[in-house]
Write a protein that binds this DNA or RNA. Structure first.
Lengths: 115, 115
DNA sequence: AGAATACGCAACCTTTCGGTTGCTTTTTTC
DNA sequence: GAAAAAAGCAACCGAAAGGTTGCGTATTCT
């Protein structure tokens, strides 16, 4: 289950896509509703529709959302794969750090960490 | 223990700080070693020391690393709090999405997708 | 058919980002 | 004490980010 072969560039792109308040807000809205159009996502945000479209494009490029065109609307929904991959990475960072800390605490001057 | 009151702006800043390959590499290096100086972090990276310093500044501003000055060196180490908070958020996103999917699967024809 | 809705595309603007070079300061080494 | 090492600061640069406006195009409503 841990066989994710996630390229560092994809990971960086994922975090970069999440690294914007507006896009986080979009993600939050998409959690509540299954699918939302550009215009409905724009409601409540004080930016133009094009700005929202651009953000959605960025999220889609990062494969954080998926797009379905339905008539004159374009519906966006969350795509969890990348979210889970990013999640797994952060869990790994936290875990490794934890181990590093324990190593540090138990025997401080022990193991010349060259390698 | 889940009482994290994490501001969306901090969350966005955290992800933004992680949204760069170079900085991800720095984080990766800091996982292995407990503490590293700017110059030792620069080794193996094909950028100037100042560039590395800037990245570390960004990571420090996002509270992803902590700084300790020791003599003429400045040592950086991972600060896990924000990593864990970001991790918790992504877990939440994945979970909520999961529930949304179940909702969707159980009663599909409910909400007239027209067309 | 005509009007309105939903959206994409392109151009443009300003700010930020990632990076560089040059210089200064502090600490360590010889 | 002089040289070298480690790093901060400031200015500068090109590219990308985030935003806007204007216009074109398909789809839906009446």
């Amino acid at each position: 289950m841990t066989g994710h072969r996630l390229q560092p560039q994809d990971l960086a792109a994922t975090f970069a896509a999440l690294g914007d308040q507006r896009r986080l807000a979009i993600v939050a809205r998409l959690q509540e509703a299954d699918e939302l159009s550009v215009s409905s996502l724009r409601e409540g945000m004080e930016v133009s529709r094009q700005a929202v479209s651009k953000h959605l494009r960025i999220l889609a490029d990062a494969q954080l959302v998926s797009v379905v065109k339905s008539g004159r609307e374009t519906r966006y929904s969350l795509e969890p794969k990348r979210v889970e991959e990013a999640n797994a990475y952060l869990a790994l960072v936290a875990t490794k750090w934890d181990r590093a800390l324990e190593r540090l605490k138990s025997h401080v001057g022990q193991e010349t960490p060259d390698a």
